[in-house]
Design a protein around this nucleic acid. Sequence first.
DNA 1: AGTACCACCTGACGGC
DNA 2: TGCCGTCAGGTGGTAC
Length: 250
Amino acid sequence: MVEAAALHGPISSVDELDHGLLGHASPPEVRDALRGASVEETARHGKYLFVRLDGRGWLVLHFGMTGGLVHLEADHPRPEYTRLLLAMDDGDRVAFTDVRKLGRIDLTDDIGSFVERRRLGPDALDADETTFVDALSGRRGSVKPALMNQRILAGVGNIYADEICFQSRLDPRTRIQRLDRRDLRSLRRVTQRVLGIAIERKANLHRLPRTWLLARRDAGEACPRRDGRILRVKVGGRSTYLCPSCQVPR
DNA sequence: AGTACCACCTGACGGC
DNA sequence: TGCCGTCAGGTGGTAC
């Protein structure tokens, strides 16, 4: 999307910028980095999107819970909740929208150092078997909080952590120490399959397979797999849904 | 290292 | 109808 919009030429102006979403970069720094810049490429690590601005480092975007990018053809109205609005040279615009303002806008010269400073773990989707297993093994906590901990693995949020536990038939409160390397390798396959399919379906919850927990993630709902009922509990302080009849603790 | 809590933010929703 | 409390989510902070 960013690349598609960027084909329309350099950014001619920054028409809106919500300072509340800025990380370490100041408003003038962000405006200066963007104005006149051409987008060269994009990259991703976990939940962060990096947009390369020619010769000026990277724009860093995090979408929080409700954030997203919208490409607007010329003369299309500015969407509600726009937090950053870029005008391209040909008149098209790109809006970063975010109802709840949990997103982030920042700058960095180097992705590696950004990842290091934030102490992000390896990307959950890109991690090879050894990387994934090494990231988790030896941990003392429960599976779900570990999957969600961006310093252990980057990229898994609350609802997908539930889905991964469901598809792994693991109670999210299961201690990692109870899992052997074979379990962790299997957890990786499930994690990458879940994230991969979610991305493919553009994370639209209505387009996800009906066999997924996410299709029925509500207390008292019928488990998509069997005759169990979905239970809501708190794990690591976060709302967690599971089917007690098919997700077994170990 | 892990856990628990709070704050940020705003729309949706349930109760009365 | 409308007010009020609660919840959802990701991150980052503090305290234990």
